[in-house]
Simulated scan of single mutants.
Amino acid sequence: MERASRCVALGPRTSALRRWLRRIGPWHWGEDARGRSPWAHGRVLVSLAVLTAGLLAFHSAVPNTVGRLGSLLETFLPWLGLAIPVLLGLALLRRSATALVTLLVPAAVWANLFGGLLLAEDPTAGRGTHDIIALQHNVSDENTDPAGTAAALIESAPDLVALEELTPSALPVYERALAADYPYHAVEGSVGLWSRYPLADVRPLDIKPEGIGEGWSRGLRSSVRTPSGEIAAYVAHLPSVRVRLNGFSSGWRDESAGLLGAAIAAEKQDKVILLGDLNSTVDDRGLAPVTSRMDSAGRGFAFSWPAAFPVSRIDHIMTRSATVTGVWSLPATGSDHLPTAARINLGR
């Protein structure tokens, strides 16, 4: 008797809910004020959905001839997916069934490109398969707490540490702070490499574009004798880019990337690790001379810049003849970049 009373009480509510669902459901929406069905309007939204899918799928077709718009798009490509929920909301407001169905296309393209990165494991939970942990950090030449930054990096216990934007005043601080845990280190210009394992054949890496004055030194190459075998480690800091009214200024960065890619191509050591601030993402065609020769796999977006609100991973750890099994960004230091760390399987 009690159950029957409860059913009677819920009956009107259930019926009202069903009527409401029928009213908002795209296949049950009635005609609009102009007498159009939900399948006959929302053409602008459909066009925007198709455009979003096209930019995601064929971003390389966007020309770089005017303001390097292609590179600018590719630098923030994952964020183009934000257009999908915005268009979804507009489609619901417009009651356009056609727009809703069309939105499945950009959603599928985005999921294919970046969905796997959402499955990133918690770096503090599991260790995965790896031989070494490498860490990359642009410490910023305006960092007021280099000692605190060094302590934060040591806490994550990497085997290799690459730093950029080392200044003459801050370098001794990093050298003292890292010496106990990393007895081997090399510095060339404003970049440095600290290691638990012996270094050999250290030399500067010439990635300076034409037009930049003397004294600009942002690259080094060193052999690292790890327990899993010898590897070549590259540390690089490519020139900065600027977004101006006339477009994306990346000429020096692209030229420097070409020099870096050529050096990696000429590297005789089979296993290579590249650590650096490349001032763009792996989707940017401007980095193609590097990304075409290196593997940047690893789950997780690991956005590293800007530290206050990271929207892009421009700090990279890439490999050749080795595998990145996990990548993540660390908590903020005194820099405008977040540190980036990666577990690497060197194989045998």
Rank of each mutant, 00 (worst) to 15 (best):
W20I: 00
L21M: 09
R22M: 12
W27R: 14
W27P: 02
H28M: 12
G35D: 03
R36S: 11
G42R: 00
V46I: 15
S47K: 09
L48I: 03
L56I: 04
V66F: 14
W79Q: 08
P85V: 09
L87T: 03
R94L: 10
R95M: 09
A97Q: 09
G116M: 10
T124N: 12
A134Q: 05
D145G: 08
P146M: 04
A151V: 10
V161N: 07
T167H: 05
A170L: 06
A177H: 07
Y182Q: 02
P183T: 12
H185Q: 12
A186M: 10
S190D: 09
I207H: 05
P209A: 03
R218F: 12
T226N: 09
E230A: 12
P239C: 03
V243G: 04
S250E: 10
E255I: 11
E255M: 13
L260T: 06
A262D: 14
D270K: 15
L275K: 01
G276S: 06
D284K: 01
V290Y: 04
V290P: 00
V290R: 03
V290K: 04
T291N: 07
G298P: 01
S304V: 02
A307C: 01
V311F: 13
T323R: 14
L330I: 13
G334Y: 04
T340G: 00
N345A: 15
